[in-house]
Amino acid sequence: MNALSLRQLNKTYDGGVVALKDVDLEVTPGDFYGLLGPNGAGKTTIIGIVTSLVRPTSGQVSVFGHDILKSPWEAKSNLGLVPQEFNFNQFETVSQIVLNQAGFYGVEHSVAERRAEQYLRELDLWDKRNANSRTLSGGMKRRLMIARALIHEPRLLILDEPTAGVDIELRRSMWTFLRDLNERGTTIILTTHYLEEAETLCRNIGIIDGGEIIENTDTRSLLAKLKSQSFLLDIGKPLQEIPTLGDFPVTPIDERTIEVEVRGNQTLTDLFARLSESGVSVTSMKNKSNRLEELFIRTLGRTKPTQEAS
């Protein structure tokens, strides 16, 4: 029994926009699954359908074996959602928001209070429990939505770009929290624009584009598909001419920096041997880009953006 199963899922919005085309997707229990794709690819539509906020045109969705239309109580009770946009009552306190959400899932008040304290403490919000939600910082609001999504202790947690707009320190602490949560048994599905995030956290990755799943495999296999990596080398002396490094393609960046491509069948040892033969002294070296980002762009056949992948 899969944590999430989508079969032949189609969605055409009013006005004729086709958002999903025959999407089949299975996420196994305990997985940390990354769903990647550019804006408008269909990620949020999939999440919307799974969480009942969007009506599918056709197809089936089941959560831990429960069809969301035939057994909505069982399906929804197993599901928690952290949406992309802030969607809590700006006039309620942090405690009211999480306790009300617990009530909507039928959680007894005494149990809800205990869990609220647990999750608000884990997410560093306990001191803010009586604060009005609109007074929270952006990062606190994101953490509040995570606490709210966990209050009924779902077995499957879906996070739609949870770290968008939060600083690096907070992002890292959220990664740690999510990794711990996953290790405690919660299946997690994550959409993100930060491909480093997906590469760091996710065991399996699906890439969606134009409403179709175009890649769905484990992160390691996906990265193995990268036939080459590019390195930026800082050279000790200014270059008079572009060095010849045998089969290693070289691109000059400036007079002290070159970019070298290392293909799958080549090694860094070979590269440094060539550099030594050519009398090129290397002072430092770095991987040019996030590997998954590289693959993502290649898969989509798109122009590479500057920072984020979509």
């Binding site: 009942s52 969607n87 039928g106």
Partner: peptide, 16 residues
Amino acid sequence: GAKFQRHIEELLVSPT
């Protein structure tokens, strides 16, 4: 107001 602030979604995603 719940629709406008989108917190109606708290109810819609729940089994209520």
